[in-house]
């Protein structure tokens, strides 16, 4: 009698292993590689913004973004030229306000390239404006 009771209490190992393996295979199959994503913060011009009185003029930097083309203060430059300019500019202070003016024909990739370049040199105050071309 005692033996019988013990037998009925044993855990059904093989069935449990089956289920556990199924779960494991399910999770391995559904697992996806997560793409690392960066968030490039920008400021948009607000419609009702009032001009603030500023006793000290902010250091302004203007970058223009066109399709497959970047300009700095209106002058066409290569990626590496802007890179080295920003490097020099950032060494004198990173408190500048960057105005990123984007052409309507520029692609999202062009904008991201410009924003990424500014952030690389520590410029985080990025204001995005539209060029009506």
């Amino acid at each position: 009698m005692r033996k019988r009771e013990d037998e009925s209490l044993s855990i059904p190992m093989s069935a449990m292993i089956d289920v556990v393996f199924l779960l494991l295979i399910y999770f391995i199959v559904t697992m996806e590689d997560e793409i690392p994503e960066a968030h490039l913060a920008i400021n948009l011009p607000s419609l009702g913004a009032r001009k603030q009185d500023q006793s000290v003029a902010p250091r302004l930097l203007e970058v223009q973004v066109y399709k497959n083309e970047l300009r700095l203060r209106g002058k066409i430059m290569t990626y590496s030229e802007i890179d080295s300019f920003l490097k020099r500019f950032s060494s004198t202070g990173k408190d500048s306000t960057v105005m990123v003016q984007v052409s309507q024909r520029a692609r999202a990739q062009d904008l991201v390239t410009a924003l990424d370049l500014c952030r690389k040199h520590g410029f985080n105050n990025l204001n995005v404006l539209t060029i009506n071309d």
Binding site: E37, L40, I42, L44, S46
Partner: peptide, 10 residues
Amino acid sequence: TKVSIVAVAN
């Protein structure tokens, strides 16, 4: 007026 553009990071 404060938004973030998402891109693939390095």
